[in-house]
Design a protein around this nucleic acid. Structure first.
Length: 744
RNA sequence: GCUGCUGUAGCUCAGCUGGUAGAGCGCGUCCUUGGUAAGGACGAGGUCCUGGGUCCGAUUCCCAGCAGCAGCUCCA
């Protein structure tokens, strides 16, 4: 091991936790991570800036892929469990080491017992990979070889890579042969391609490490995944990192705070947006903009309440289908909630993790949680205990439910309970507006002459999103959709759908949103989550694609992305760090009209079933606002800016004149503020710049005597002195045309 | 929900492996009355996320919870 490189993992506070040599062992262990090659080089490169190497350079490599940003690389997911815990630097380095598989006798050993805490040292036993191959091994070419599938399976089994074996059995056995890559003695099943050898990587950085489900399936085990990026040289890497930093400055969560657009309070609840005056101003302008357009296009405004009876959502299917993503139902009888929970689980026939906590809580409150329940490992027995609990509850409530008692299995018991629950008055915070709008449609008989009926509302809905999904304004638990539901004859579907796509495009164009993609969400034929007849789906999907084609839009068809009731076209945009969000959406629905038994009278004087379109050009005001903040980097165009003009006085003496200018602008309907503090003008200008106010009007001696203002545009700077009236003309025009200039 | 990281003043963060905390910006008061991105002085402001535990002593170490961040899963 003499001249061999090693990683020095600097512990958080001191160095003496690790015996010298341990670091080499860690490198050694890293080598064994499937898909991760460790390369020794001459340089002082660091891993995440904190892992130093004595005589060489550590590099990670794996699949390289060219992207718009350069090269990206990521490791394969690890194949074996970890067994060591190391207290080192708090970030990446520790994570890598922590996750290294145990193949070579990786032993954690308690090093020292602090007053309370424990520190661990970990060390490896066994021969060193470097020890045998040395640096030369790392410079070896990465070679590809192929094996017949059966042989390949055997090789993976020999390497004790059980997930690879599983992968072959599940998905790869259809291929006659499989490819491997080898560097020295490291062998990995991989489709490739690979770089010729790891030395090709000039600079890399491990970006993040995170869990990922095996085969992206949340019921399967979770593995660790390393994300990194690699470039041919350090300069390109630095440039890339700088670009990322710049992008993060556009983050709507950062700008929203800085510019006082919105806030989120833990007390009010996570995922619930509090729109501050400036954010609310922008939203209000957007809403009026939409409302005006809707009126022009023949929509009728409606208002509906924020809650509805559970029965409504049972009929629509939303309550049973999205049960876990909703706030709990509200029953008048408190115990009905508990029975509802039991009914749900008896119906499912399993104890789901998500509801277990709630269930135990109810049981505990009812003094009905026996220790046996907690210890019971069998799901079937737990369900049986739940059933016994229901019996007691029914008795105590004096609920006579003969059907429940007669039932011999959980499914029938669940049905009996459901029947009772349906008689109980219960409400749900509305997760969707459509059921309410449907009942407006149903409130009067409809003739084909009335169609299409277009009902629009800024409808606020509530969904209990998983904690891990919440994200600023883009993923929240309460949001307002710029929603509308259209009811029409089959003949009208095509033109209505087309109009709506154009509608969305019109908004996006107005706001300068050009970087989006169109996604056609179709049914996944293999999935059971969809309702309705296959024939309806096929018809809907075919006509949808036809319309999109005829509009000349580029799009991708994505099976499995449909709503449960119908196919849809979504407009998807990226946020400042490249994550995709669905904004505008137009959805076809043949199912809800059936569920709610909607009708219209046709020309033949017979009842017919209308077809529905759900559409929301912005998606939700919250998400749209979030994306818009990032799109404009907080610098809204004049027509949207919460503060359009700021008066800046050169000194205190000109306050009175400043106020007359302010009044003139306000009378014309502009959003204007005056900064009359006795600070230096330069400081006040700087503040207005940072507040991203489009126009500053500097007033002092010169302006006062001329009845004018010195105009400073946020982007171009000083534009010279103008009479007030002339300035007003200018900005009136800019607002009317919804100009997007000066928004950088 | 899962994996990992983080949680200190209004904001951004520092606090050197345990002895009741600091900076910059912001805020307040006073001085300064100026010409296109930061004038100066003084001052106020903190349950160090919450709850347990270890210890003579915990912001610091341990456990649990909550919240935020990144990724995965989900997204009507």
């Amino acid at each position: 091991m003499t001249a061999l490189p090693f990683i020095d993992l600097t512990p958080r506070r001191e160095h003496q936790w690790f015996a010298e040599g341990i670091t080499g062992e860690i490198t050694d262990a890293l080598v064994q991570v499937p898909g991760l090659h460790v390369v020794a080089r001459d340089a002082e490169a660091v891993l995440e800036g904190r892992v130093y190497e004595a005589g060489g350079r550590v590099r990670l490599s794996a699949e390289l892929k060219r992207t718009a940003d350069g090269y990206k690389f990521w490791s394969q997911t690890f194949d074996r469990p970890m067994s060591g815990v190391i207290a080192v630097e708090q970030d990446i380095a520790a994570q890598i080491v922590k996750r290294v598989p145990s193949a070579r006798g990786w032993h954690p050993r308690k090093l020292r017992h602090q007053a309370s805490g424990e520190a661990y040292q970990a060390y490896l036993e066994g021969r060193s990979w470097f020890g045998r191959g040395g640096v030369e091994a790392l410079r070896k070419a990465i070679e590809r070889f192929e094996k017949a599938t059966a042989e390949a399976r055997g090789l993976c089994a020999d390497l004790k890579q059980k997930l690879k074996v599983e992968h072959i059995d599940d998905d790869l056995k259809q291929y006659p042969s499989l490819s491997f890559y080898r560097q020295g003695e490291f062998i990995d099943l991989c489709r490739g391609p690979h770089i010729p050898h790891a030395g090709k990587i000039g600079a890399f950085k491990v970006m993040t490490i995170a869990g990922a489900y095996w085969k992206n399936d949340s019921t399967r085990p979770q593995l660790q995944r390393l994300y990194g990026t690699a470039f041919f040289n350090q300069k390109d890497l630095d440039a890339y990192l700088t670009r990322i930093e710049e992008a993060k400055k556009r983050d709507h969560r950062v700008l929203g705070k800085q510019l006082k657009l919105f806030t989120i309070s833990q007390m009010v609840g996570s995922g619930l947006i509090l729109w501050m005056p400036k954010g609310a101003t922008v939203r209000g302008i957007l809403e009026s903009f939409i409302k005006d357009e809707l009126l022009k296009r023949g929509y009728s405004p409606v208002y509906t309440p924020h809650i509805g009876r559970l029965e409504l959502y049972r009929t629509s299917g939303h309550f049973p289908y999205y049960r876990d993503a909703q706030f709990p139902p509200m029953y008048h009888r408190p115990s009905a909630g508990t029975l509802d929970l039991c009914q749900y689980r008896l119906a499912m026939g399993e104890i789901d993790e998500k509801r277990e906590h709630d269930y135990q809580e109810y049981m505990r409150q009812a003094h009905m949680l026996p220790p046996e329940y907690l210890k019971e490992p069998s799901q079937a027995k737990k369900l049986e205990m739940m059933h016994q609990f229901v019996l007691i509850l029914l008795k105590e409530l004096h609920v006579n439910l003969p059907e429940y008692h007669r039932a011999t299995n959980h499914k029938d018991r669940a049905d009996a309970l459901l029947k009772w629950l349906m008689e109980q008055e219960g409400f749900l915070l509305k997760p969707m507006n459509c059921p309410h709008h449907i009942h407006i449609y149903k409130a009067e008989p409809r003739s084909y002459r009335d169609l299409p009926v277009r009902l629009a509302e800024f409808g606020t809905v509530y969904r209990y999103e998983q904690t891990g999904e919440l994200n600023g304004m883009t993923r929240v638990r309460g949001f307002t959709q710029d929603d509308a539901h259209l009811f029409m004859t089959p003949e009208q579907v095509e033109s209505e759908f087309r109009d709506n796509l154009e509608f969305v495009l019109f908004f996006f164009r107005t706001l300068g949103l050009t970087d989006y993609r169109v996604r056609l969400g179709f049914r996944d034929p293999a999935s059971t989550k969809y309702v309705g007849e296959a024939a309806d789906w096929d018809a809907a999907q075919t006509s949808l694609e036809k319309i999109v084609k005829s509009l000349g839009m580029s799009y991708t068809v994505e099976p499995g992305e449909a709503a449960f009731y119908g196919p849809k076209a979504d407009f998807v945009v990226k946020d400042c760090i490249g994550r995709e969000w669905q904004l505008g959406t137009v959805q076809l629905d043949y199912n809800l009209p059936k569920r709610f038994d909607l009708e219209y009278v046709g020309a033949d004087n017979k009842p017919h079933r209308p077809i529905m379109i759900h559409r929301a050009p912005f998606g939700s005001m919250e998400r749209f606002m979030g994306i818009l903040i990032e799109h404009f980097a907080g610098a809204f165009p004049l027509w949207l800016a919460p503060e359009q003009v700021r008066i800046v006085t050169v000194s205190d003496k000109f306050r009175a004149y400043g106020e007359t200018v302010e009044r003139q602008l306000r009378d014309k309907g502009f959003r204007v503020a005056g900064d009359y503090r006795p600070d230096k003008m330069g400081a006040k200008i700087r503040e207005a710049q940072l507040d991203k106010v489009p126009y500053m009007l500097i007033v002092g001696e010169k302006e006062q005597s001329a009845g004018a203002v010195a105009v400073r545009a946020r982007v171009e700077g000083d534009r010279g002195v103008k009479p007030v009236a002339e300035f007003i003309d200018c900005i009136e025009r800019e607002v009317q045309t919804r100009s997007l200039t000066a928004t950088i």
